[in-house]
Design a protein around this nucleic acid. Structure first.
Lengths: 221, 221
DNA sequence: GTATCCTAAATTGGCGCCAATTTTGGTAAC
DNA sequence: GTTACCAAAATTGGCGCCAATTTAGGATAC
């Protein structure tokens, strides 16, 4: 477990101290900037994100609650080292939840909502070509959120968004290959096709495959 | 929205300042001591639980993250006022998750685990007769946790435990009638019976009924 | 040369003060 | 009698210091 060298980027941000520190650290973990095992020294974070000590502590406590970082008393916080089991379990949960509402999604899908999904799917495809890794990640999130929203269970939408953050410590490792990302983009469109056809079972199949696929390679890490 | 009068119980606890403040407040919300809408003044909590200001703040922040209390900037924190919709949505999620793993539960059920479930179900029955409301609540939690553990998805067990806390701001109102609680106890045993018989569909039916039942009355509040 | 112990630097984390904002109660004016 | 405004009390929340613990490095002994 090595700790980060943040000194090089210290004053890089400085200007945008307004955005919440918790989200900033979260995104840096998700973005792979803070790899699993990294010790998050309070002083470094303080300087890095241009905020005060209590801010850093609050952020670390929140992330520890979300089990994204681990707190070792008197030793500090470090980015949680994922075991494969947890990743598999989380995707199992996602499969259960997202296939369970497939019926409602199809039932509630209006022409407008299908159009909106297409737009978001296309946006994902665009980001593959000319977006950053984070933009791609967020485009993917936006598509899935819109899809789940059709299930008309707001709590479920939030819950899935939440458990998504639970294992994706390094989206870089998930989307290693370009081929995999392209495939994901195609799957999005296939899912919309299934909704248009009103084929619930097809949507379930695609959803399960789509979720499981993302984690197939990372378990070998 | 009225705020609590805590002065009467100020020094009542004092001795057990060791247990985590967050859990204490959480249990007091769950126990109905702090009803929805109550303003949680930091000074009062500080005195009530015999802890320092930062402790109170950390606890309130955590509870706000869990959406059990709401934070209004410069005005403080108050216990979240539940709408019926959310409660229904959460129980929908529970039904999805808990019925989804019914098959695995039946498959993994060993004679020992069935015995353990019986013990926990009986303990629930005992608590109906001679336990406090909180003990009853915890006995119920323990039974359901053990049941879900048979599904061999640790994340799912934790997740259900988590979303359970999301709406049960007042277990008192859930279990208003004695008849309802007795019925719950019987249902526990029926569920174990179904597992013994290896009847997955029956277990699913019972599970759905059991979860939905708890919330049927509270929506009229 | 290596291992162990001791000392010093660094980091965590507990705790409290003070400024900013809000609320409440009283007073005065209409 | 009611309303509006002002002032005082209270509450929130930002910020920083200092003690306790840990870690790393150096010196000494074997």
């Amino acid at each position: 477990m090595n700790d980060v060298d943040l000194k090089s980027e210290e004053a890089a941000i400085e200007g945008e101290a307004s955005r919440d520190v918790t989200d900033q650290i979260l995104q840096d973990i998700l973005g792979g900037l803070l790899p699993p095992g990294t010790w998050l020294k309070q002083i470094d974070l303080e300087r890095r994100y241009g905020c005060t000590r209590p801010d850093v502590r609050r952020a670390l406590d929140r992330l520890a609650q979300k089990r994204l970082v681990e707190h070792v008393p008197n030793r500090g916080y470090h980015v949680y080292e994922q075991d494969g089991r947890r990743a598999v379990e989380v995707s199992d949960i996602r499969v259960i939840l997202e296939t369970a509402i497939a019926g409602q999604i199809v039932a509630n899908a209006s022409p407008e909502s299908i159009l909106k999904l297409r737009t978001l799917a296309k946006r994902f495809d665009e980001m593959v070509l000319l977006g950053t890794m984070l933009e791609l990640y967020e485009a993917n999130l936006a598509f899935h959120r819109e899809l789940l929203t059709l299930g008309s269970n707001k709590e479920l939408v939030d819950l899935v968004a939440e458990i998504r953050q639970r294992t994706s410590s390094a989206p870089v490792s998930q989307w290693r290959t370009r081929a995999r990302v392209d495939q994901s983009g195609r799957e999005h469109h296939l899912m919309i096709d299934a909704i248009e056809k009103g084929d619930v079972e097809e949507l379930k199949r695609l959803t399960e495959f789509h979720i499981r696929q993302s984690w197939g390679s990372s378990s070998s890490n």
